[in-house]
Computed example of a mutant assay.
Amino acid sequence: MRMELVEPRRQQQRQEEKGAFERKSSRGKSTRRKMTISIVEEEEEESPKIVDLSGMSLDSLPVNPTINLGAISKLHISNNNLQSIPESLTARLLNLVELDMHSNQLNSIPNSIGCLSKLKLLNISGNLLLSLPKTIENCRSLEELNANFNMLTHLPDTIGFELINLKKLCINSNKIAYLPYSTSHLTNLRVLDARLNCLRSLPDDLENLINLEILNVSQNFQYLSKLPYSVGFLISLHELDVSYNKITELPDSIGCLKKLQKLSVEGNRLVSPPPEVVEQGIRAVKQYLCEKINGMHDKSPKKKSWFGKLARCSTFSGANIPRDDREDFGVPSNRTIDVIASPRFMGMLSPRRLLSPKTYFSK
């Protein structure tokens, strides 16, 4: 009898312990489940968002107060009828990495674009922009700027000093006459597309663009007549397009571009290198220019200097200067330049005065 009473008690105790364990474990599972849900919801709130409103024929951007603008990473509003972008809207897109506004009717870009410190890609092509705001220089993370097919006449003067991370600059099909001097400080630039503009010249210090691989300044037609010598120091250049300009002579330094694989020069009236060399391809052109650097193609007679003409004459009065030489100086044949022969002017041309240090003039 005693054994029978003890056994049921032990069984009841075991069942109670088992039930308590199951209840405890079930509470633990529910707690973990709730924690998991809260973490997922929190991650969804902080995850970057992409807003695409392109191709919707919008005249203005819709205002939705429930949207957290600070969470948007990519905003596409291309192919609409937008004429302006609100300053307040742009200023709140603090985490924006990509902004595509191409193919609208924009006359200007809001100054608040300078608040987009994380922006890496900006596409504003196909609009009616006359200029870019100076505040764009504050977008120091910008890697690609596409401003093709606008009405730009210039770029901000100091754009190259600030956008140090820029890798691709596309400004073709505008009305730009000069690239700012600071362009030569874009040391990370890989692509520069400035075709179909009104370029008169390029910056002189292009050798600083050590990573530039593609340079396209074609189709500036009657405006661009000369390339700077520094083009030949672009050590990473793979492709150079200067076609359809007014260039008559390529810089000899281009022959030193070891990585150059594509050279387009058609549509120019080249004298150096001559057309028969150009027709043979890029290898022949580079060889010709290298030989020209070494003086192998320099057959033109040396120009006679102005001082040499005077040195051959026994006096500076002009009496012994041949008539044709006097005409080169713009001096009438029936008149001498006796005033130059006066002691006062002869003193100015004396070797002591010309070759002495600056202290001579300060005495």
Score class of each variant (00 low, 15 high):
residue 13 Q to V: 05
residue 2 R to Y: 02
residue 168 K to V: 14
residue 315 T to L: 01
residue 70 G to A: 09
residue 74 K to P: 01
residue 260 L to A: 06
residue 15 Q to E: 15
residue 270 L to A: 07
residue 356 S to F: 00
residue 258 K to A: 14
residue 257 L to P: 02
residue 72 I to N: 03
residue 54 S to V: 02
residue 224 L to E: 07
residue 119 L to R: 01
residue 260 L to I: 06
residue 201 S to K: 13
residue 281 G to K: 11
residue 195 R to M: 08
residue 230 S to R: 01
residue 120 K to P: 00
residue 77 I to H: 02
residue 21 F to A: 15
residue 236 S to Q: 09
residue 317 S to T: 15
residue 170 C to G: 00
residue 177 A to E: 15
residue 200 R to K: 12
residue 236 S to C: 11
residue 326 R to L: 11
residue 313 C to R: 12
residue 12 Q to I: 10
residue 257 L to G: 03
residue 304 K to H: 08
residue 297 H to D: 06
residue 15 Q to I: 08
residue 61 L to N: 06
residue 187 T to F: 03
residue 201 S to Y: 03
residue 239 E to M: 08
residue 62 P to W: 05
residue 319 A to K: 12
residue 234 L to V: 09
residue 85 I to Q: 00
residue 301 P to C: 11
residue 47 S to L: 09
residue 121 L to I: 14
residue 123 N to H: 08
residue 39 I to E: 12
residue 164 I to T: 13
residue 31 T to L: 13
residue 138 N to C: 04
residue 204 D to L: 13
residue 79 N to R: 12
residue 263 L to F: 15
residue 293 I to A: 11
residue 341 A to S: 15
residue 290 C to A: 12
residue 248 T to V: 09
residue 184 S to P: 04
residue 182 S to Q: 07
residue 293 I to K: 14
residue 310 L to V: 12
residue 203 P to V: 04
residue 328 D to N: 05
residue 324 D to G: 02
residue 320 N to R: 11
residue 331 V to D: 05
residue 292 K to M: 06
residue 352 R to H: 08
residue 310 L to P: 03
residue 236 S to R: 09
residue 194 A to R: 03
residue 196 L to T: 09
residue 300 S to G: 01
residue 191 V to H: 07
residue 108 S to L: 01
residue 15 Q to K: 12
residue 99 L to N: 05
residue 164 I to D: 06
residue 87 E to F: 01
residue 97 V to N: 11
residue 301 P to D: 10
residue 101 M to V: 06
residue 298 D to L: 07
residue 153 T to I: 12
residue 9 R to W: 08
residue 232 G to C: 05
residue 36 T to F: 05
residue 244 Y to R: 13
residue 19 G to C: 07
residue 154 H to K: 14
residue 220 N to T: 06
residue 216 N to W: 04
residue 227 L to G: 05
residue 201 S to E: 15
residue 313 C to W: 01
residue 288 Y to C: 11
residue 130 L to D: 11
residue 318 G to W: 00
residue 123 N to G: 03
residue 263 L to K: 08
residue 171 I to N: 04
residue 7 E to G: 01
residue 142 L to M: 03
residue 153 T to Q: 13
residue 22 E to T: 08
residue 209 L to A: 11
residue 26 S to D: 12
residue 173 S to D: 15
residue 61 L to F: 04
residue 328 D to I: 07
residue 214 I to N: 10
residue 291 E to V: 02
